[in-house]
């Protein structure tokens, strides 16, 4: 689902104009980003947590060229779904 489609579906549910919904979404995303930049953990009930994790620097070897590279450390955003969401997903059919 696109950003646009999401806004459309939300606008329908909220009975609000799309521009307002879009604006609110932008503000929400911006606040979340700011909090994450501050290395805070954000939790949405029954949905999941957004956490900032540090990845240590490591030595990685290119398998074919055998060039050893020092990958620098970095901070990444991770999402962990809540158990309630996990249960909801269990009921999903899987076609393969």
């Amino acid at each position: 689902m696109n950003h646009k489609e999401l806004i459309a579906s939300m606008a329908i549910k909220l009975n609000a104009p799309k521009s307002v919904v879009a604006d609110l979404l932008d503000v929400t995303v911006a606040t979340c980003t700011e909090l994450l930049v501050d290395e805070k953990t954000i939790g949405f009930q029954s949905f999941g947590n957004f956490e900032v994790r540090k990845k240590e620097e490591r030595l990685s070897v290119h398998p074919s060229t055998q060039i050893r590279t020092l990958v620098p450390p970095k901070l990444v955003v991770t999402f962990k779904q809540s158990n309630i969401l996990k249960d909801k997903l269990k009921d999903l059919p899987h076609n393969e």
């Binding site: 020092l70 990958v71 901070l75 990444v76 955003v77």
Partner: peptide
């Protein structure tokens, strides 16, 4: 956008070949 914003403290680093 989010990735770079969060990685701001380590943004100046890049991978280095050990040779």
């Amino acid at each position: 956008v989010l990735r770079d914003a969060v990685n701001e403290p380590f943004a100046h680093l890049s991978p280095v070949e050990l040779e």
